[in-house]
C-alpha cells in the first residue's frame, strides 16, 4: 500500500477566545495590570484522527461552527495543531474560499501568476498552463481588466481554474463548488471528476449531501469539534440527513 495522502493524528486545536481581541497596547496593559487577562478556552477540534489514502475522496459534513473549516486549515498547514500532528504527502492545493491570494488592483492575467507563485509554482510552469486557465475560466477579454471590476462569480471561476490546472495531489474544496452559475457549477464538478481519474485526493466540505454522494466515496460528520460518524459516503450521508431532519 502506498503512503497515505493525508494523515491526521490526534489533532486538537485550542483557541483562547480573549487573545483574539486584544490588539492594542493600552488594552493589554490595563488588562494585564488589573489581572483580567483570563482567557476563555475553546477547543475547536478535539482529538481528531483519520487517514485518507491516495485517490480517496472524503466528504466532511457538519453544521455551522462544527470545526470543518478549522480542520481544513489545519490540513492546509495554515493553523498549527495545539496537540497531535498532520502530515500530507504531495502538492496540496487549498481552495478554501477561492481567490484568497488575489490582488484586487492586479489584472486577471497578473493574478494568475501571483496565485500560482503563492502555491509555489514557477512563472514558466504557469505560462504553460496559462491558455488552459483562461479558457476554463471563460473570462475572455476580461483577463486584462483589474480584478476589482470582476463579479464575484468571475473571481471564483478564475480561482477555480488556476487551482485545478496545476494538477495537485491533494485538493481541498471548501464549499467552492457552490459558486458561479449553474453552468459553471456543472463544468467544475466535471473538472473535479476528471481529476479523480488521475488519482487526486480530495477533501471536500459541503452542506449538500447530494454533492457529497456524487463526488465522494467516504465521509465524516463533525459535531462540536468531534467526529461523530465516519465511513462509507452513502451511509454517512444518510445519517447526516437524519440529523438535519431531527433538528
Amino acid at each position: 500500500m502506498a503512503k497515505p495522502a493525508v494523515v491526521v493524528d490526534h489533532v486538537s486545536i485550542l483557541f483562547n477566545l480573549n487573545s483574539e481581541k486584544i490588539d492594542n497596547i493600552k488594552e493589554y496593559f490595563i488588562k494585564f495590570i488589573t489581572r483580567k487577562l483570563h482567557y476563555t478556552e475553546f477547543w475547536a477540534l478535539k482529538d481528531i484522527s483519520f487517514t485518507v489514502e491516495k485517490g480517496e475522496r472524503i466528504g466532511i459534513l457538519g453544521f455551522n461552527g462544527a470545526g470543518k473549516s478549522t480542520l481544513l486549515k489545519t490540513v492546509a498547514g495554515v493553523l498549527k495543531p495545539t496537540k497531535g500532528s498532520v502530515s500530507v504527502s504531495g502538492v496540496i492545493a487549498p481552495l478554501l474560499e477561492l481567490g484568497a491570494g488575489f490582488d484586487m488592483n492586479y489584472s486577471g492575467k497578473e493574478n494568475i501568476f501571483l496565485y500560482g507563485a503563492t502555491m509555489g509554482y514557477s512563472r514558466k510552469f504557469i505560462e504553460s498552463k496559462y491558455d488552459e486557465i483562461v479558457e476554463f475560466s471563460e473570462l475572455g477579454d476580461f483577463i486584462n481588466v483589474p480584478l476589482k471590476n470582476y463579479s464575484s462569480g468571475m473571481r471564483a471561476r478564475l480561482g477555480f481554474a488556476i487551482a485545478t490546472a496545476v494538477e495537485p495531489d491533494v485538493l481541498i474544496l471548501d464549499e467552492v463548488l457552490s459558486v458561479g452559475d449553474a453552468k459553471f457549477r456543472k463544468k467544475s464538478e466535471e473538472k473535479v471528476r476528471s481529476m479523480f481519474d488521475k488519482g487526486v485526493t480530495v477533501l471536500f466540505v459541503s452542506h449538500s449531501t447530494d454533492q457529497v454522494r456524487r463526488l465522494c466515496n467516504k465521509a465524516i460528520i463533525l459535531k462540536k469539534g468531534e467526529i461523530i460518524a465516519s465511513g462509507d459516503a452513502m451511509e454517512v450521508c444518510a445519517k447526516y440527513d437524519e440529523l438535519v431532519n431531527k433538528k
Binding site: Y106, G116, A117, T118, G120, Y121, R123
Partner: peptide, 17 residues
C-alpha cells in the same frame, strides 16, 4: 528556495502597482 517565485512575484507586484 521553493518560494523564490513568490518573492519574485510580490516584488514585481509592488513595483508595478
Amino acid at each position: 528556495y521553493k518560494y523564490r517565485y513568490l518573492i519574485q512575484e510580490i516584488v514585481r507586484k509592488n513595483i508595478k502597482l
